[in-house]
Simulated scan of single mutants.
Amino acid sequence: MPLGDHLRELRKRLVLAFIGILLGAIGGWFLYDVIYGLLQQPVEELRARGVEATLNFDSVASSFDIKLRVAGFLGLIVSCPWWIYHLWAFLAPGLKHNERRWTLAVIGAGVPLFAGGVYMAWLALPNTYILLTQFVPEGETSSLFIGVTDYLKFVMQFLLIFGFAFLLPLILVVLNFLGVVKGITWLKGWRWAVIVIFVLSALATPTADVVTFILMALPIVVLYFAAVGICLLNDRRRARKSAKEEAELDDALADGASSSADAER
Rank of each mutant, 00 (worst) to 15 (best):
L39R: 02
Q40C: 01
P42I: 06
P42F: 07
E44Y: 03
L46H: 09
R47N: 14
R47P: 01
A48T: 10
G50E: 09
G50Y: 01
G50K: 06
V51N: 06
E52I: 05
E52Q: 15
A53P: 11
T54S: 11
T54E: 15
N56F: 07
N56Y: 09
N56L: 14
F57P: 00
F57T: 03
D58F: 10
S59E: 03
S59L: 10
A61P: 05
S62Q: 15
S63E: 14
S63T: 10
S63K: 14
F64V: 15
F64S: 10
D65S: 12
D65C: 02
K67D: 09
K67F: 02
K67N: 11
L68Y: 04
R69L: 13
R69E: 10
V70E: 12
F73G: 10
L74M: 12
L74G: 07
G75H: 01
L76D: 03
I77H: 01
V78T: 10
V78I: 15
V78E: 04
S79A: 15
C80P: 02
C80H: 12
W83R: 09
I84N: 05
I84F: 08
Y85R: 12
H86T: 05
L87I: 12
L87M: 11
W88V: 05
W88M: 10
F90E: 02
F90P: 01
F90H: 12
F90W: 09
F90A: 05
F90V: 08
L91G: 00
L91C: 09
L91K: 02
A92R: 11
A92D: 08
P93K: 05
P93T: 04
G94I: 06
G94C: 09
L95S: 07
L95V: 07
L95N: 12
K96S: 13
N98Q: 11
E99P: 00
R100V: 02
R100Q: 13
R101D: 01
W102P: 00
W102K: 08
W102C: 02
T103H: 03
T103R: 00
L104V: 07
L104D: 08
A105C: 05
A105G: 14
A105F: 14
A109K: 06
G110Q: 07
G110I: 04
V111G: 03
V111F: 08
V111E: 02
L113M: 14
L113C: 13
L113E: 00
F114A: 06
F114W: 02
A115H: 00
G116L: 11
G116D: 04
G116P: 00
G117E: 04
V118W: 04
M120R: 13
A121S: 13
W122N: 11
A124W: 06
A124P: 06
A124S: 14
L125N: 05
L125M: 15
L125D: 08
P126I: 02
P126W: 05
P126H: 01
P126M: 08
N127Y: 06
N127L: 08
N127F: 03
N127R: 09
Y129V: 07
Y129M: 11
L131V: 02
L131F: 13
T133R: 08
T133H: 14
T133N: 15
Q134G: 08
Q134H: 12
Q134T: 08
Q134Y: 04
V136L: 06
P137M: 12
E138N: 09
E138G: 07
S143L: 11
S143F: 15
S143E: 12
L144W: 07
F145I: 14
F145V: 12
I146N: 00
G147P: 11
V148L: 05
T149Q: 14
D150W: 09
D150H: 09
Y151R: 00
